[in-house]
Each structure stands twice: as structure tokens, then as C-alpha cells.
Simulated assay, not measured.
Amino acid sequence: MLSLGQKRPVAPAAKQVVKSSVQKTLTITTPCAVLYSPNDAWIERHRNSDSTAFYAVADDVMYYVSQTGEYLNKRKIKTIDTQASTLRFGLANGSVKVFDLRNSNYGWGLILFNGRNTPKEADLVEPAAAVKAVFGK
């Protein structure tokens, strides 16, 4: 299990490439899964409110992020790890779907995008049904 601050292992070169991004706004136009994590300010704010609970939750979340990353990698789904505060998804019809991750409800999470339709927020604990619905895998 990974602890807070540890990086999730990157897949070997023969497997699906994992990109990492810490820019403020990330624009995505191709099919992928986005594993987002909070920035340092979010972590500090929540750690200060209840450090015992924060570390317990963060430890569990890091485990699920790692498991989900492995699950996506086995299905050869491009994965982007990011701490961006805003995600912009370019849809096939020319519109843009924006996720503002500065909202306090967002900490760690998973968004699936098939490159055409509105991206779908998925469960980090049980991503299989959403992955199948979005990517057919």
C-alpha cells in the first residue's frame, strides 16, 4: 500500500504509458482515464482539520488509486495522473465539459473519457462497470 506523498509506480515501458501533470488547467481531447489528486494546499487544509482521519483516508485512497491504475493498465487504457485544478474535455460535438477540482468535494478521483461523449466520474474502489460502459473493455 502506498502512503501519502509516495508516487504510484509507473508502468513498465512495454505497457500503457502513464502521463503526469501538475499544471493548473489540463485540456484533454483523446480517450483516457484521468486519476486526479489534490494539490498541496488542499492536502494541507484537510490535514489540519483532522490529521488522524486524514491520514487514514489518504492511505486507503492511495491503495485504491494504485489498484485502479493497475486495472486500467491491464486494459491498455491511457491514464493521466494530475493535480490540475481544472480539467477541460473537448467533446466530439465541439463543446467542452469542465470539471473544477478546486471544489472542496474533490480530493482524489477517476474520470473516464472516450474522446467523444461527456466524461464520466467513476468509482476508484470499483471502476469495472464504468470502464466497461465508457470504453467497452
Rank of each mutant, 00 (worst) to 15 (best):
Y106R: 00
P9T: 04
A92I: 07
A130E: 04
E70T: 07
K15W: 06
S95E: 15
L87A: 06
N114C: 05
T86C: 04
R116G: 08
I28S: 01
A53N: 12
T118L: 13
K132Q: 12
D40F: 04
Y55L: 14
L124F: 00
L72T: 00
V96D: 02
F135Q: 05
Q83E: 14
F99I: 09
M1S: 09
V18M: 10
D59S: 14
L72F: 02
L26Q: 07
G115M: 03
Q67D: 06
Q23H: 10
L72V: 01
W42Y: 09
G69P: 00
N93R: 08
L124M: 05
V18L: 11
A58L: 02
D81V: 11
Y106H: 08
T29D: 15
P12T: 10
L112A: 02
S51T: 15
Q6K: 11
V131Y: 00
S20D: 08
P31K: 09
S20W: 13
S20H: 12
I77S: 03
L72W: 00
S21Q: 05
V131A: 01
T82M: 02
V57L: 13
V98P: 03
S104Y: 04
Q16Y: 01
Y36V: 01
W108M: 00
A33H: 01
A92Y: 07
G94Q: 10
G94V: 08
Y71K: 09
Q16H: 04
R75H: 12
V98G: 03
S51K: 13
D100Q: 06
L26F: 06
S85P: 00
G109L: 00
L26N: 03
A133L: 09
P119M: 01
E44L: 13
S49I: 13
Q16S: 08
S21L: 05
E44V: 07
W42D: 11
H46R: 13
K15V: 05
T82Q: 05
S49R: 14
K97Q: 14
G5L: 11
T52N: 13
T68G: 00
I80V: 14
P9E: 10
S51H: 12
V17W: 10
